[in-house]
Design a protein around this nucleic acid. Structure first.
Length: 554
RNA sequence: GCGCCUGUAGCUCAGUCUGGAUAGAGCAACGGACUUCUAAUCCGUAGGUCAGAGGUUCAAAUCCUCUCAGGCGUACCA
């Protein structure tokens, strides 16, 4: 069953071109081996038709003739029902103009698939684990985590639509040194509430949120905690603070429209899993001892240098746990592991990939999406985002300030590769002209049209009446939706979908200004209403993937 | 030093993976369009050495090499 009209059309075109090429080769008594890949593309300029191919230019050398001559020979042999006209232009492009029937079929397709329109299968249900955010539970999520959160969430959404079997996971580092510092910091804050004179050490967490947590601790325990053994104090503080922060992180993500299938705890690896992973590496002779520490031979797999997994004092490095974690992921049977990391972790890629190879898996099962640093600007000044310094803007603050939809769109509209200045004033001031409102406004306008439509019978619509440029351009874009899902999913670039959403809304606004939907002309009203209904469906499908609301009025 | 990311209009960025025809949006500027299904919209004008230099190609913002500039990273930290 067809679910992607653009793909269908392109296949037909390519087939027609290929057969023309073969015929022409026979006529000219020339053999080209292998037959070059035939590509068709939508030309930038409208005058160049709906599609163009460069095949004449690519094969000119073999034919020993000018591209334009080849093109003229080829078009005599091209034949397909969907082609309305063919012409040769420029240095040797063959341009095609298509009949509109495939566009009307697109509307019928959307009508048939409804909320399934845009669901394709380019992945054969490959199982993918996407790990993202994974911030340390030592403080609330700050603005720097937001981008990775949205990128991860959107990538997961898009890959699901493209036919991947996606599993979303958050990894909590609840076993390392930082958690101990968190416990100590909490205890000091707690003691300070009893006027005990201690200062936070410089490496402690200085954020205000720990005072709040200490207050809660006091509400629960009173001064009782002070009576206990120090080991016990630390343990209680650790559990209490961790639980509070973990819940806070989960709440904030939920508030941002981001869900996870699993919250994975590093501590669960400390029951022998890490030793198991290291043992496997030992057996394969990728571990050696030097200066009292155990080293992993990551250099053998392309890393800059070997890495310590067990320190000379016997404690484990972060990498040791991470190796075990990735082994655990692989043993759960995923075909692909995708990690979304901040740019400050990119130096870590080689060693983790090395460990995956050392464990016997191909290097490319692991894919890392690096999101570049976000700089937060307030009053034109950069805000530092160190948790320990305690001065940072939380993710929650930003969402409350600019709104969930705007924040999500803002973080996704640019490629993850590009550096990103988040100017709070700008985001607030321009909220009315923020692209997300532009897109949502399209949906609200459609709703308004439908309210005014009364009892117009859409089912009798004659789609052939849709033939002005604005209508056809809009449908062409609607037809692109499954294709955009495909490109976006396969290239792991969610921002493509955000750009598409903008283009689609733009095409609608142009149409809206040019074409009155409900008019005296009853037949035309039916057809346009049908078009608008289809667009509403596409927008709703799209908004669901973007994670933004589809407002009925604004 | 080495590695990764970036450099495109006054500003913020698409386009680079997969090379195509006259390099596009938004914001800012200027000029138009509401007796109309929402003007949170639309139309027009102006704005460019695609950081620079070589190379590959019929064709380069896009691929290769070098240079310059900014960011990030280069732990027995997490």
């Amino acid at each position: 069953m067809e679910n992607n009209m653009v793909e269908w059309v392109e296949k037909k075109l390519i087939k027609a071109i290929k057969s023309a090429l073969k015929t022409t080769m026979k006529e000219q008594d020339i053999k080209i081996e292998p037959i070059p890949d035939i590509k068709v593309e939508v030309p930038r300029e409208k005058e160049h038709g709906d599609y163009a191919t460069n095949i004449a230019m690519v094969t000119a050398k073999h034919f020993k003739r000018s591209p334009r001559e080849i093109a003229e020979l080829l078009i005599k042999n091209i034949d397909a029902k969907l082609i309305k006209s063919i012409s040769v232009d420029g240095p040797g492009f063959i341009n095609f103009e298509l009949n509109n029937s495939w566009l009307y079929d697109t509307i019928r397709l959307i009508d048939r698939l409804q909320n399934k329109y845009g669901e394709i299968n380019v992945a054969n249900n490959q199982r993918v684990l996407i790990e993202f955010v994974s911030a340390n539970p030592t403080g609330p999520l700050h603005v720097g985590h937001s981008r990775g959160a949205v990128v991860g969430d959107m990538t997961a959404n898009i890959m699901e639509k493209a036919g991947f079997d996606v599993w979303r996971e958050y990894y909590f580092n609840d076993a390392g040194n930082q958690i101990d510092i968190l416990a100590e910091s909490t205890l000091i804050r707690y003691k300070q509430l009893f006027d005990i004179d201690i200062d936070l050490p410089s490496n402690a967490y200085h954020g205000k949120y720990l005072i709040d947590i200490a207050e809660s601790l006091k509400d629960k325990w009173g001064s009782e905690l002070l009576e206990k053994e120090i080991v016990e104090q630390i343990k209680i503080c650790k559990e209490f603070a961790f639980k509070r922060l973990k819940n806070k992180i989960e709440d904030d993500l939920k508030y941002f429209g981001i869900r996870f299938d699993n919250w994975f705890y590093e501590s669960s690896l400390h029951n022998g899993e890490i030793e198991k992973a290291i043992d496997i590496l030992k057996e394969k002779r990728y571990i050696y001892k030097e200066e009292g520490a155990l080293w992993f031979k990551s250099k053998k797999f392309g890393d800059d240098k070997d890495r310590v997994v067990v320190k000379s004092d016997g404690s484990l490095t972060y990498l040791a746990a991470d190796i075990a974690y990735h082994l655990d992921k692989l043993e759960r049977g995923f075909d692909k592991l995708i990690n979304v990391w901040g740019a400050d972790h990119h130096g870590y890629i080689d060693r983790v990939r090395a460990s995956i190879q050392a464990l016997g898996y191909p290097a490319d099962v692991l894919e890392i999406i690096i999101v570049q640093i976000v700089t937060l600007l307030r009053d034109g000044e950069k805000l530092t985002m160190s948790k320990r310094a305690g001065e940072f803007v939380t993710m929650r603050d930003v969402i409350d300030e600019v709104g969930k939809d705007a924040a999500r769109y803002f973080y996704i509209m640019r490629s993850a590769d590009s550096h990103f200045d988040f100017n709070l004033e700008l985001a607030k001031e321009q909220s009315a002209s923020n692209p997300v409102y532009y897109i949502q406004y399209a949906h609200a306008r459609i709703h308004s049209i439908l309210e005014n439509a009364g009892d117009i019978e859409v089912e009798k619509a004659n789609l052939e009446l849709l033939k002005c440029t604005e209508e056809l351009d809009l449908i062409k874009l609607m037809a692109q939706y499954p294709e955009v899902i495909k490109d976006s999913a396969l290239s792991r670039q969610p921002h493509l979908l955000a750009n598409y959403a903008y283009d689609l809304a733009n095409a609608f606004h142009v149409f809206y200004n040019q074409c009155k939907v409900i008019s005296e002309d009853k037949k035309r009203s039916q057809a346009r209403l049908k078009l608008v209904l289809s667009l509403q469906q596409v927008l709703q499908n799209l908004f669901l993937v973007l994670g933004i609301d589809a407002p009925k009025q604004m």
